[in-house]
Amino acid sequence: MPLSLYLNVAVGGVLTGLVYGLMALGLSVIFGVVRVVNFAHGEMMTIAMYIAVVLFAAFKLDPLVMLVPIAAVLFALGYALQAGLINPFINRPEHSQFILMVAVALIIVNVLLIAFGPDAHSVQTSYAFDSYEVGPVIIDAPKLYAAAGAVIVAALLFAFFRGTRIGQAIRACADNYTGALVVGLNVKRLYALTFGIGAACVGAAGCMLVVINDVSPAVGPAYTLLAFVIVITGGLGSLPGALLGGVLIGLTEAMAGVFFTPSAKSMFAFAILVIVLLLRPQGLLGKRA
């Protein structure tokens, strides 16, 4: 096989990986602050993907254009979920929180199944088959747009956490829960806000992913697992780590698809997960507890 093919696949993998990275970023934000593992993360993304599919089918609205309103819907969903359901569980044992989120995930997947059926849906944008040629490399236009969108959203998120007062308050909350309470921050509200932001991230990621991939209810759990793999690889709670992990996993899956069979690609992602868990449990960019 020619070198340029590998290069094409690699570039595609990196671009998809950036979108994965944004999805995982949401999980990482939620974990880093609220310390709750969102086991319904991929399922929340499928909600966003289905909204995009419906809007496209009904009104021909491009998912990339609908990114902001869809992210806003997911933000509201995340906020409500944290404020209504998860906040009372903050001081419960880890497995209790985990089970709560498993229940939420189970409900989301199957409500989507009832509403949309088991078959895959997709969005056929006008640029679905466009591509750019950069030297020897051919880049798919949807992947390029999606990755660019992911980078922009991620950059906005970084700016939010560094530059705004609410962002800084959330970071203070993450560093020191009791301290944040003492200085009078409304921690529960900040938690809800954080969960909302994490959900908005994954909502935005869903809008971009639906341009690249199909969606069916069954992909929710798969994306949850993928998000875990990425976040643990990059370092749970580390934002740059999530992006790095996304790129790494995206690249790995793409290359595995070429060298082996595409259906076995997630095996390689899991292999990376296991290796990282064992050798560097804090993740590539994570801090040791």
Binding site: S96, V102, I107, N110, I114
Partner: peptide, 20 residues
């Protein structure tokens, strides 16, 4: 097809909230 699982989900939710 998904009704049973949705039911499981709500049962789980209920139990973990009310009878941990």
């Amino acid at each position: 097809p998904g009704a049973k699982q949705v039911f499981y989900g709500f049962c789980l939710l209920l139990v973990v909230m009310v009878m941990p």
